[in-house]
């Protein structure tokens, strides 16, 4: 179906600093083959690898001082 919502490209927002923002719902496959899912309207995926809730961003990328 050319106009069905599932054919709409999923938007991913990239930033120089900070998480990848992906329109939900998403299912993420991790390195060990396990999967995690979220049906939030948007998810923030950790790119700094410091998150304690990886693959989800927990704001650990923030500067500290």
């Amino acid at each position: 179906m050319p106009n069905s919502p599932s054919d709409t490209p999923r938007r991913i927002t990239v930033q120089r600093q900070g998480p990848l923002l992906v329109e939900g719902p998403v299912e993420i496959e991790l390195e060990d083959g396990s999967t995690v899912a979220s049906d939030r309207f948007r998810v923030a995926l950790c790119t700094c690898r410091r998150s304690r809730r990886f693959p989800w961003c927990d704001t650990s990328h923030r500067a500290r001082r």
């Binding site: 927002t13 900070g18 998480p19 923002l21 939030r40 948007r42 998810v43 923030a44 809730r53 989800w56 961003c57 927990d58 704001t59």
Partner: peptide
């Protein structure tokens, strides 16, 4: 509070941008 760690990391981005 676990839910708010995750949810608000997203909300922060949406609210700012």
């Amino acid at each position: 509070y676990d839910e708010h760690v995750e949810a608000d990391a997203v909300h922060e981005q949406v609210v700012r941008h």
